[in-house]
């Protein structure tokens, strides 16, 4: 089956990011196709480039990137939710006159329309919320 995940929870604040990641890994290990993980609401913090958890904890940012590298999962971040929370890629930082970049590829800032598309074109969309 073709799946999409909607993640609404902030990393290290609620369990939802860890649960979503474990679900994502279970999907691909069972041979399903995970098309996209869409980060919305506080979930956008999963895309924080400077995320630095202690070394004995799972690095969620790296884990999402690994999922992208190994299984081609798109990592889409709602641009409106991200900008509010200080998560800007190079293009948005330049547009808003901000120094520094807090989101980098393979995470991509995109619109909510992508979430609706993913939800309607995939067989299943599973939401992980706070």
């Amino acid at each position: 089956m073709r799946y999409a995940i909607l993640l609404l929870g902030a990393p290290y604040s609620t369990q939802s990011s860890h649960s979503a990641l474990r679900f994502a890994k279970a999907l691909v290990s069972r041979g399903h196709k995970l098309e996209t993980v869409f980060f919305y609401h506080d979930g956008v913090h999963n895309a924080a480039r400077l995320m630095t958890p202690p070394q004995d904890e799972l690095h969620l940012g790296d884990a999402w990137q690994q999922l992208h590298a190994e299984h081609g999962v798109a990592l889409q971040v709602c641009i409106a939710a991200a900008l509010r929370r200080g998560l800007l890629d190079e293009k948005e930082a330049a547009r808003h006159g901000k120094q520094g970049v807090s989101v980098a590829a393979p995470f991509e800032l995109t619109g909510l329309g992508q979430l609706i598309d993913a939800g309607l074109t995939c067989d299943r969309l599973v939401t992980f919320g706070p």
Binding site: H41, L112, G113
Partner: peptide
């Protein structure tokens, strides 16, 4: 919290 607002935003975009 902002879940209501962001949920409504998703509805409006759809």
């Amino acid at each position: 919290g902002s879940l209501l607002r962001e949920g409504l935003d998703a509805a409006l975009v759809a």
